[in-house]
Design a protein around this nucleic acid. Structure first.
Lengths: 210, 210
DNA sequence: CCATTCTCTGAACTCTCGTTCATTTTTCAA
DNA sequence: TTGAAAAATGAACGAGAGTTCAGAGAATGG
């Protein structure tokens, strides 16, 4: 009755439901990014999304579910784009560059999500122990795992030094993160994209001169 | 009456007060490191420190104050040691190496604090808007500022590439952090110290081969 | 040994949310 | 137009946690 059984079409009802669901998630993202999970209340989200408190529970069964759904879906978007571009690229260096491109594009379009994203990278206060949290954690780890794979290949093909692939992957995210952080902090001063050469140079060739 | 007026001596009372205060902070550190600020309750801290809930308020005026005091004092310890060793070193590369040494020593002796520390590196917006929070933030920024100074000198003397000193400092912390993170995650597998050459190699010479 | 002061205690208080649900409003097919 | 189903509402509820405080217990000094 709800599902437009079998075929991919969805009814207007369903479309509208998803629209409203997205409104709520967008409002929640703004607030979570600004104040974190614990300092954002459901009624604030409701007000921001122009719904009543109770209505939120027609879309998400709890605050935690709302948060984790948001996180999971957004990571999936990033991951999907990263994977596509990475797989299209040929060599290891090209693949890594594709990852950088993808991340830059995503975060230039979704500033707010960076804060939420990086909160979870560093295990910023870890509120939730439920099943959903595990799913999100798994998602993030699979994202890292793909990076690790790139480095494994890269090492095998002699493009990268023979360090631990995990170490290289984490360091790469560390450098990437540093630039994301600086870019977020210094608001509208320059684009993230123009930092791409610097990011790659530091990560590939290091900081020492000569 | 409390202060041993003027001279540096402190009474036994005061010493005992400080001992108990440290007990509480140590207990709090363990719990905050494990579960974060919001998921650690005052009664848990009290139990861990073998005090009653109410007693904590003889030492700290609030949970927030306890947390921020802990954070501030620990950052000060790190900062002090980093500064001493850095200032003793001659050239920019030696200074940076001294910083690495200092951080490695500190965190090998204080595993727990890493999680708390890294929580605060990227996320300044937090529940707390009080004066203490500002102090902690200032402390952390002054720590970064010293790093930036090292890089400024290093660039001027031709030891580092002419990137933005802030970018180099943040990237350095990013790489350092990645190794700290891996080390913490993989529990007792190897020491942090033995990673020093890798850390420096990646940061100085990058990840690309040849 | 007593009196006073300091310290500890933990139950009670309070306040803040997340969540629920009876009621109202809207939707939409007949 | 109408009435039943779906959606929205927001006041009320309840659980959890930070904080307080009146009384109990130690420590100190005369």
């Amino acid at each position: 009755m709800n599902e437009s059984s079998e075929n991919g079409k969805i009814s207007r009802k369903e479309r509208e439901f998803l629209m409203r669901r997205n409104e709520i998630m967008a409002a929640a993202m703004r607030l979570f990014a600004g104040k974190g999970f614990h300092n954002t209340t459901m009624s604030e989200i409701a007000k921001e999304a122009e719904f009543s408190t109770g209505s939120l529970y027609n879309f998400f069964k709890s605050k935690e579910a709302l948060y984790l759904t948001l996180l999971r879906e957004e990571i999936e978007k990033i991951e999907a784009d990263v994977r596509v571009r990475k797989d299209q690229a040929k060599g290891p260096a090209e693949k890594l560059e594709a990852v950088v491109d993808s991340l830059i594009d995503y975060f230039e379009a979704n500033r707010d999500f960076f804060k939420i994203f990086s909160m979870h990278q560093d295990h910023f206060e870890w509120p939730m122990k439920g099943e959903l949290a595990q799913v999100v954690r798994a998602k993030y780890l699979s994202f890292i795992a793909e990076l690790v794979e790139v480095f494994k290949q890269g090492i095998a093909q002699g493009a990268f030094k023979a360090h631990e692939p995990e170490e290289l992957a984490l360091c790469f995210m560390g450098v990437m993160n540093s630039f994301l952080f600086l870019w977020i902090e210094t608001e509208p001063k320059g684009t993230l994209r123009e930092k791409k050469p610097v990011i790659l140079d530091i990560f590939y060739r290091g900081s020492a001169k000569g």
